[in-house]
């Protein structure tokens, strides 16, 4: 059975739920069974939140991620709260400027925010992260399906900048 569990985390307003929705959308288009859930507090901005995606060639019953294959974090608080139960050989993807003590040695650190700023809008960090993830999942999920899902899911008028950020992210890893 093929099954991938992905957990995004960050603070409210960073768009990690949207990133997860786009990933799930692309996975469904690729023919997988996919589920997407989230957990968030009362804050519209700030606080720690997570958004999860499971995609598999079998129906997914329990929809929450138990043991992430890939864990991604855009804030130190979210990293501390949600980085647990990683699979053996699981991958951690972090924004490189985060102050995260006891970080596993094989953690992948990327300049997510700095790359996002190259588009002119730091808010596109979620798409940079998705681009990084796309390169990690390239054997299972065609990049074009993610691009198509971005096209359909981001607010109208922002497609170009979001795709730009996504491709910057893709090139990072």
């Amino acid at each position: 059975m093929f099954k991938k569990e992905i957990r995004f985390s960050g603070s409210g307003g960073q768009g990690i739920i949207l990133a997860a929705v786009i990933l799930a959308d692309a996975a469904v288009q690729a023919g997988f069974y996919a589920v997407q859930t989230q957990s968030y507090g009362p804050e519209a901005r700030g606080g720690a939140s997570k958004a999860e995606v499971i995609f598999s060639d079998q129906p997914v019953d329990y929809p929450k991620v138990s043991t992430p294959d890939i864990f991604l974090a855009l804030s130190a608080e979210a990293y501390a709260k949600y980085c647990h139960d990683l699979k053996h050989n699981g991958i951690i993807v972090l924004e490189e400027t985060l102050l995260t003590p006891h970080c596993a040695a094989d953690t992948l650190k990327f300049p997510v925010f700095a790359t996002a700023r190259k588009t002119g809008k730091e808010i596109t960090a979620n798409m940079v992260l998705l681009g990084i993830l796309s390169s990690l999942l390239i054997d299972f999920l065609p990049k074009a399906l993610l691009e198509q899902a971005i096209n359909e899911r981001v607010p109208s008028g922002t497609t170009e900048i979001n795709l730009l950020a996504f491709n910057y992210g893709y090139a990072l890893s």
Partner: peptide, 9 residues
């Protein structure tokens, strides 16, 4: 809440 907010194919 889970079913209401769940996204799936």
């Amino acid at each position: 809440e889970v079913i209401a907010h769940l996204r799936e194919g």
